[in-house]
Every structure is written in C-alpha cells, then in structure tokens.
Design a protein around this nucleic acid. Structure first.
Lengths: 347, 347
DNA sequence: CCTCCGGATTGAAAGGTTTCACAAACCTGG
DNA sequence: CCAGGTTTGTGAAACCTTTCAATCCGGAGG
C-alpha cells in the first residue's frame, strides 16, 4: 500500500516507479514484460501488482528509440472516400494481423490527392521510423519516394506502376481488363461502343482504353468503332453528363453499348438512362470498372470488371514485410482482373 | 568533405554525426532545427549542408520521448468501408490541418466492428502517447475508454452517446431525424409507413424509430400506423430482403411509404422495387438516412436525412484539441440533421 | 566441507533528441 | 578602453526502455 498522491496529476508512472514499488530492480521489471519465463513466479506477481496499482503504461517512444524501429505499417491512400481504396486497406489489415512478427499495427493516412498532404505524411512516417510504407501515390515517380526507400524505409507502390524497378509494387492489368470488357460487348453483338472516361490522363484509364481497342481489333473492328465520350474526372456527375451527350447523338451514330472507366461514371450514366427512358441493356448496354459494392446494388445491376482489391492490399503488405529479408529483390506483381456479368449487358 | 563509407548501410546519421561533420556542438544542431533564429547564418548554413550530405532524418521517437507526447491524433473508426465514416474522417483532417498547434498528423485506424482490433489499437495509441484519440467505439460504454481517459489521454466519442459525461462527444439528434423523415411522408399523404431496420439494437436506429413514432403522433396517428420490417443488419442485402417481404403483403395492408434506417437499406429496397415493377414513389415512397453520395445517384434519387458528417468530424477534432486547455469541462455536442427531398418521395 | 552450476536478479550503458544554465564572443556607448 | 548588454554557442542532464555482462544465491556432486 503506497500513499495516494492527492495533488495534481501523479505524473504517469514509469518502469522505475514500478520497480521501486515492487522492491525490485529496473531490469527485473523489464524481464517481467519481455521475458516473463526468466522471472520467478513470486517476483513476477509482485511486479504485476505494482504495475496494476500504479496504472503503468508502457512508453512506446522509448521502446522504439531503443529498438531503432517501430512496429507500425502505414498506408498512404490516394482517396479515403473511394471504396476501392478502403477495400485495399482491408486486405492490408488482414495481412498485418496474420503476420508472424506479431503485434504490428496498420495506420491509414489519407492524402486526398493532395501532394502536400502526401509529402507531410511521408516525412512524418519516415521520421517515425515505421517498419514500412504502403502508398498509392499522387505521382508514382516522385523523387521523395525513391529517397525514402534509399534511406532504408521499405516502400511498396500500390495500384500504380512506377517507372523503374526501384520499389516493390502491386497492380492490376488494366489493358486486359479493358479487353475482356469490350470483348464481352462485342460477343453480345455490339459493334459501336462508347468509351467513357478521361483517358488523356496517363495511367489506368489509358490502359483500359487500349485494351478496348485491342478487343475490337481482335474482332476485326477498327478504332472508329470506339466512340470517345471524354470526361474531366471519374465521378457520378461526369457519368450523367456523358449520358446526356450520348443521348443527344442521332440514332444512326449512337453507340449501343458503353464501357465506362469506372463504376461511378457507369452509375451516373445509368441514372441518365433512367431519366431519359432509355432501357438498359436494350437501348444501351453498360459495363463499369472496379465492381464496387454499389455496382451490384444499382437499379439495373451493373456488369463490371472486378479487381482483386483485397488481395491487392494483402499482397502489398506481404511484399512490404518481405523487404527486410536478407537478399531481397524488388518485385512487380500484376494481378488479372475478371469480368462480372450482370443485367446491364444481358438482354 | 567526409569520406564516404563504402561498406554496408552507413547506419543512419544522427544529430551527433551532423554536429561532428559541421564542426559544431550538438546543441547548435538542435538550435538549427528548433530555433533557427538563434543561430548565425554562417553556422546554420554549415549545419544544413552537413544534414543534407549525411541525409539526416530526424528521429521522431527520441523527440517524443523527450517531449513526453507525440504530435499525432488518431481516429479509430468503426467501419472503414462505410462512406459515412470516411467523410467524418475527412472533417477531422480539415481540423487537424487547420490547428494552430501546427504539424499535427491524423492517423486512421479501422476496427471493422471487431472489439479485439479496437482494443489493440487503443492500447497501441495510448502507449504511443498520442495527443488524443477520436473513436466511434463498438461499445461506447466500454471500461477501457474511461481508463484511458483517466490516465490522461484525451478521448472524444464520435457519433455515439456515452452513458455518462466522462468524455467529450459529438453526435446527431437521431430522434429529430426520424421525426422530420416521417413528418415529410405524412405531409405527402401517407398514413401507413414501414420502418426498415434493426431497431432491437440500442442506439441510433432505436432513436430514429422513436422519432418516426413522434411524427405520427403529432399527426394524430397511432403507433399502429408504423409497420416494422425488422432486418438483422443495415446492408443493401437486408434492404432487398425487406423489399420482398413488403411486396408480399396484401395491398390492403401494404404500406405506401418506407422509412429506412440507413441509405444502404434504402438502396436495396429500391432495387427490389425496380425488379418487381413497383414504381417509386407512386407505389412506394422511400426515405433513407445518411444521404451518402450514392443516394443522390440512385436510379430514383433518394430522399434522405442528411447528417453533417464532415462537420461532425471537424467538431470532434476541435473538442479533442481543446481538451488540453486548463479548466476543461467535457462537452456533449449534438447536431441537427436535415431532410433532403428528392424524387423518391415526390409524386 | 568445498566447488561448481544454473537460475534469478542486478546495474550500467546505450539509444537520439531537447532543454537550460552557462560561457564566450561581440557590440554599444560612455 | 571598459562596463554592461546582446548574440552565439556549449555541455550536461533528462526522457524511458532494453540489453547484456556480471553478481548472487541455493543446491548438487565430489
């Protein structure tokens, strides 16, 4: 029984205080925490009682300082409000929970497409000496990413393909995704197909369009069978706008099917169709991309290209954890997407 | 010019190394970092050059250890895949960015409804001595939350109302939300209204139903005018199931309107209506709750009760930051939701 | 009875930063 | 040229934990 301080905040007890209260040395308290088997049951009980009584909370900063690294992984995501990324993050959580090196935590950081925010997070994480950084970067070729990796913090690029092979990365084959989407439409008898998206941007969307062209070519159809409906971004509103433009085309030219770069765009398009009394899929067949949960729940369930989001995240985290192994070589993993056929393309 | 080590990893330079390389004392390096104005331009330049050359990265663990606390806030969210919570988190990010005590980072942790995960995160955060914890807990009255707060880490409860007043909290008036939803339906001429949700659970959903009953009462309608369609959870699938049950009711009893505890449920219900050729709102008017982005983008845009999600998050973070002020009193902030009327209830 | 052994415990060093009292150097004005 | 003030720079202590070599002790074997 020690006397309870009645003054202001009792100044959070440390191991030293615990040791004093239990009448043992500092080293013994440490042993109780880290190698309980090396401590006799009697002393251990005394120490544990003291810890409980003093409401001892281990100081992680001090542990890290000593250890030289923390037991934290972080995912810097591009857009926390996009279900795609939260699912990827869920996969990472699975991997972190399952890791042998128990006791890992995954922290999420949302850059929200803002380079400044991304940079601030990256710096903070590096200073925190996190075990590794997972990131879907605004710019996959940013110098900072390379620098951080060079200085020794493992970095894995998620859902982007960096220029070189200076990091591990995981991504999905978007050309193939575009190909299976449009091949399906062609098989359904369509030969004038709209591509809805902002393909001027490099990356994903461009690849998906490329795949679409390949599918047409394979069917003996030239690039003029793909009608571009270019949007500024990939939101639901963009999809609505594209729908109106599409409906305005004369019937002789109007595509009978649309391949959307994204499910959000597809949902917007679908909504416009409903408003304008165009029947889906009879008047217009629609294929989306990502297969987000709401794609299946739409008024007309959406055919979509599914990416193995959760697996993407899990694999990324596994690659990250493998970085610390001795003769590590960076790997670029590419997954294959899959077409999920639903009512929006089946007449 | 120092000689570049050619062996393995040069062992990350610390301030001591920088000091040596620049030919100054440790304290001066510290001053360059923390009080640059107290250092003459010449030495500062020397030190900065040395830092660049050695690729010096500040060690946050050591800083924290010295400072006694970190510059990190954390939000432990109940469900990272629910757009509601990611929007709340976005509001917190706004507040963290704007905070006077510059240089705060917000980390997100996803408990995914799992008490064990939540507990692991809470312990880790407390050990990390974070500046404060924001949380939408699985159980708002869990003992651990109180203990952590008692030991000195500020805790703010988000979107839940804890039993006592031992924490700050922010929430939304769900009774009122239910009331305005059903009042609107009554004004549209409905007098037999379905309530779709799992109201056996305590909390939100129960309050929303309570509000619905009040609205009926205010219109002189008894509780028998509310038809309960009870679900197990609040997912799209639950909504679909409820829709089928509803459609199975004889027309003489079947409600002409439905108030859903959640937009996901409402979207599922909407989908069933489309499948069964029930017209919305003519055959069934639908009101959802949360006003998630997809509510407006549905095939029939959904009337919904909007919660100030972003503001909820921002306020929560502000309350948290205010906790450190001297004579702090815990506050319970309650926001008022707002009805957004769209096509799903307007004939 | 002495030695040796192994398990239990201890004490001190180390890890990188910040802070603070203090010393040194430089200026100003008398 | 000096007293007193300001600007720069220094050195050591403190933050809390972990690790590891060293010590202590009781007991077994000779």
């Amino acid at each position: 029984m020690t006397v309870q301080e009645s003054g202001a905040e009792p100044k959070a007890a440390g191991m030293k205080d615990v040791a004093a209260a239990a009448g043992v040395s500092l080293g013994t308290v440490s042993n109780v925490l880290n190698r309980p088997d090396r401590v006799s049951p009697g002393t251990r009980a005394k120490v544990e009682a003291a810890m409980a009584q003093l409401r001892f909370v281990r100081n992680e900063s001090a542990r890290q300082l000593r250890a030289g690294h923390s037991r934290v992984l972080a995912y810097v995501m591009l857009d926390g409000s996009n279900p795609f990324f939260t699912d990827v993050a869920a996969g990472m959580e699975d991997a972190a929970d399952a890791a042998e090196a128990g006791d890992l935590s995954l922290f999420l950081c949302n850059s929200a497409h803002q380079p400044a925010r991304e940079e601030a997070y990256l710096n903070r994480l590096e200073q925190q000496r996190v075990q590794g950084i997972l990131i879907t970067p605004v710019d996959p070729d940013a110098a900072l990413l390379r620098e951080i990796a060079d200085r020794g913090t493992p970095v894995v690029i998620v859902d982007r393909t960096p220029g070189g092979t200076t990091h591990c990365s995981v991504a999905v084959d978007d050309v193939y995704g575009g190909e299976i989407a449009v091949r399906h439409l062609v098989e359904q008898g369509h030969d004038r197909i709209a591509f809805v998206g902002n393909h001027t941007a490099v990356g994903q969307v461009r690849d998906r369009r490329l795949g679409a062209l390949r599918a047409l070519q394979a069917a003996g159809l030239g690039p003029d069978h793909l009608v571009d409906l270019t949007t500024t971004a990939l939101t639901v509103a963009d999809g609505r706008g594209a729908g109106e433009r599409l409906a305005g085309l004369p019937a002789s030219i109007r595509p009978t099917a649309a391949f959307c770069a994204n499910d959000l765009v597809a949902l917007g398009l679908l909504q416009t169709c409903a408003n304008l009394r165009m029947r889906v899929p009879d008047d217009l067949a629609i294929v989306g991309y990502d297969d987000i949960e709401f794609a299946a729940a739409a008024a007309v369930p959406l055919t979509s290209v599914r990416q193995p989001r959760r697996r993407l995240g899990r694999t990324a985290a596994e690659l990250l954890l493998a970085e610390t192994e001795p003769g590590h070589q960076h790997r670029q993993v590419v997954f294959t997407p899959e077409l999920v056929v639903r009512a929006s393309t089946l007449r």
